[in-house]
């Protein structure tokens, strides 16, 4: 009698311990409340998602697991069904996923721009030049250039500009690849008095820590466009389709778009992102 009760209570205890470990709650409203969001480092490093996600989680009851990696890796996770929803900024690469059917509900969310930054002395004299001419000048001067080198959205953009400038920088002594996130790369460029390509949001977020100036900006090829998309549940059965849909809808919701448009105004005096939902 006693022995049996003892055994039962041990079983119950183990059950609770396991629950504690695995983190299954009984409270969650949605059936599968975890959403894996694979995104670029800039949305996290700039602090934007820290503002948006708590609102989304409170509104819907989902818990967003943000995996902040380069856009290349984020898209690869989407392509393999390892994430539920993506927020990335490499339209050309994203298009391939849309075409193969790996992702659906492809929605324009916002944009900002890339800028070429470098030391105030500007050894290659790129100030005011277009991005293509600037890279040509940097290559001609063999001025130090720091690249992400991690297949991220920014890196893809940088490579496309090198291509237009008809320069192959890979392997050159003045061209260094960090393989790190945008924040870390900007810091390195500052420490080494080098040029680099960055998104404006990360530059502004790091501005207090660095000695780099904006030297080239504003030409159309420097546009930085962010899209949100659902990983296709028809292709990957394990995807949390409801959660992904809710997240994409949230990102293009007029209220969210308003928050995006005003994010950074208080701290930097200018917005870091410009809302674009519904445009095109």
């Amino acid at each position: 009698m006693f022995g049996k009760r003892y055994r039962v209570s041990i079983a119950v205890f183990c059950f609770f311990i396991m629950n504690g470990f695995i983190g299954i709650g009984f409270a969650g409203e949605p059936k599968n409340k975890d959403i894996i969001l694979a995104t670029t480092t800039s949305t996290v490093d700039s602090g934007l998602l820290d503002v948006l996600l708590p609102v989304f989680e409170k509104l819907t009851g989902y818990r967003v697991k943000t995996i902040s990696v380069g856009t290349g890796q984020a898209l690869a996770m989407g392509e393999k069904g390892e994430a539920d929803v993506l927020l990335t900024h490499a339209p050309a690469s994203e298009k391939k996923l849309v075409d193969t059917g790996a992702v659906t509900n492809y929605q324009l969310v916002m944009h900002n721009d890339f800028i070429l930054v470098g030391p105030a002395e500007d050894p290659a004299g790129i100030k005011g030049k277009t991005s293509i001419e600037s890279l040509k000048a940097i290559a001609a001067k063999k001025a130090l250039f720091i690249s992400r080198g991690d297949d991220s959205g920014t890196h893809k953009k940088e490579l496309s500009i090198w291509k237009k400038a008809e320069v192959t920088p890979a392997g050159a002594e003045w061209y260094q690849e960090t393989g790190q996130g945008m924040g870390a790369t900007v810091l390195m460029a500052s420490e080494k008095k080098a040029y680099t390509l960055t998104d404006r949001a990360t530059y502004l977020a790091q501005k207090a820590n660095i000695k780099l100036e904006i030297l080239s900006q504003g030409d159309p090829s420097l546009l930085n466009i962010y899209h949100a998309m659902e990983v296709n549940v028809a292709k990957f059965a394990k995807v949390n389709a409801d959660g992904a849909k809710a997240f994409v809808e949230f990102m293009v919701d007029p209220r969210t778009q308003k928050v995006i448009g005003s994010f950074g105004m208080d701290k930097f005096g200018e917005p870091l992102f410009f809302p674009d939902a519904g445009k095109k």
Partner: peptide, 9 residues
Amino acid sequence: VLEVSKGKF
């Protein structure tokens, strides 16, 4: 690691 990326040393 994250706070370094954010520039919040």
